[in-house]
Design a protein around this nucleic acid. Structure first.
Lengths: 193, 193, 193, 193
DNA sequence: GATGAATGAGATTTCATTCAT
DNA sequence: GATGAATGAAATCTCATTCAT
């Protein structure tokens, strides 16, 4: 492993990371280094110039997703303090941001949400973040007080994950559309009146 | 005391299938034949007496889950015609059945819902079934008419799947409890009043 | 890794061990598994049926030598109590045994004495054994009392090792001859009279 | 303050050689070029500016040791002609010189004596030199005439080598001390009186 | 109904070495 | 006088699968 610093090397490293993301997203951790380097126009040993092991590059991708999630969480919490919309719009905006976030880097999202063996951890983090937000609204009197907000958060996150997989990433629905639908369903419920 | 030779073979085959289910559920498709046969007290070639390949036994498990889902669907649709409860109870009962179904064979469930690379198919089937049920209730006037029932069904199924993974299979919640919570959330919504 | 028990498997395992001994003796730890299995008329994976790793088979050979050394030590100490020859004959006999022992399994000897990275340990063990023997003779008054027997033991062992490598294993001298020469030199010294 | 460009190259080459000696001494021929250049603050291609291959630099170190041995031999033979001490002192002085020589460049010594695959050659050279010296003393009547001086030389050299490895290089004994002990043991022998 | 023994194909990783600048 | 970037060749090890009995 050397420490590349000039342009071409950096480009190779980036290419490897991007292609690795795509391969891991498609085939899970079984993605082959040989395919990755081939797609990057390199030979096998070149991989090890930039990453010490297959595990390392995978972990780097997982951490990249984690970091992005953490950033989103922090920003999102700040926003919630500053904005003052009605509750529908407020929640919808946040959901939309969430969906946008997840669709911005589809491969990273797939890796973080679906292929990482420790994906339960990120999920738990997301659930916690959502729960905190919801509890605030609940305390502000917007939601029924008898709702278990951890349960609700878990349901919401699972919906987000699923809709991301089946509608958002395949391009069948926009972030805005999904946010609207989810808010409408979850806030109002299914019952008439 | 009958012909033990015939029975022994069947027993071995069943044992292999059960253990394979457990291994695939635990380790995904990467589960090793060598581990499976070892746990079954057999040697590797014995495996190939009963199943032509790793893929074949995996597919058999996936199909077993599919078949169970199909059976559930048929029974469920029948039930829905015969029963005459209020809508809460009605839906809750079905959800409870669904959760019971999923918890009855945890390994099969995990394989069908989480490890099968084509799990989207079963999911779609489940979504369709749920959707059909919901449409009927909607047409009967129980639900808001502006709800896209395909969307709702997808949300509901994703919640079911997730809660199955995080609460039902680990034994943290009962089927009855989860059904109650889901019904309460989805039917009434989160908003006060 | 299976547990072979029938004849052919046992033969293969033994062949692998024998050939491995020869290869390690010739080329050091860098000996290649591929050469070993080829010489054994097997393919690479067959190796891993019998030994879990290259390190494992090497360690097995090293341990085999250690065990033989330990056995020799125990027997040798017993002998020293029972026999009652003059001191020349006594020491010569023991030296001869030692040389015979080292020439009995040349590959094992080379591995234990020259290629094992931890060969200092066995050497130390051998030095200790020789020292104990010498001290007894010294206390019995056969040797000068101002000799540091640890130093003498170390010299003796190094001579044994060297003569084994350059004369015994190549077949240039017999164990008996070497024992005679060493005893003559070490006991009488070089000075005339 | 002269031409630093020429000097820098020479300095790099020397540094590589020194570090290579240290690495080969520590890890045997398996020492890695990548480690050597890293320790020298250079990159891998720089190595090949100065040495055509790994084998070449290793051989250069081996030859350096050989040359030093040859020089020692010549000087030693001259000395033996000029000096006129008693035989104990005479031999002891030479042994001490030998030990000093071996401890002066520990890395080179380790490479020449222990890691060079052809170390038998240098050993043979050293044996021959020692033998020549001993034969002279023997002819002068100092030693028993029935001693095979080639055998004695080989024993002596092996002792020197071993004591160098276990006592001299680790700093446990001085050259003078070892020389004294060896002379005492070998000349007088172990027997009392 | 099963086993002992073995293999084909391929995966990750290592290391000396070279090309272009 | 040196570097950034890359490679050829090979080594260890894994795993589903098969042959002969």
């Amino acid at each position: 492993m050397a420490k590349p610093s000039r342009e071409k090397g950096k480009a190779s490293k980036t290419r490897l990371l991007t292609i690795a993301a795509s391969e891991f997203a498609k085939r899970g951790y079984n993605a082959k280094i040989s395919d990755i380097v081939a797609a990057a126009g390199l030979t096998q040993p070149a991989f090890y110039i930039y990453y010490p092991s297959k595990e390392a590059i995978f972990e780097e991708l997982v951490q990249a997703f984690h970091n992005r999630v953490r950033t989103l969480i922090e920003n999102s919490l700040l926003d919630s303090a500053t904005e003052k919309q009605n509750v529908y719009e407020h929640i919808k905006t946040k959901l939309e941001m969430f969906f946008e976030f997840l669709s911005a880097e589809p491969d990273l999202t797939r890796i973080g949400l679906f292929v990482d063996p420790n994906r339960a951890q990120v999920r738990a983090e997301m659930v916690r973040m959502v729960q905190e937000n919801l509890v605030k609204e609940q305390q502000a009197g917007y939601f029924r007080s008898n709702l278990d907000m951890e349960f609700v958060a878990e349901c919401l996150v699972s919906m987000i994950e699923q809709l991301t997989e089946t509608r958002l990433l395949p391009g069948l629905s926009s972030a805005e559309r999904l946010a609207t639908q989810v808010v409408d369903l979850l806030l109002k419920g299914m019952i008439k009146e």
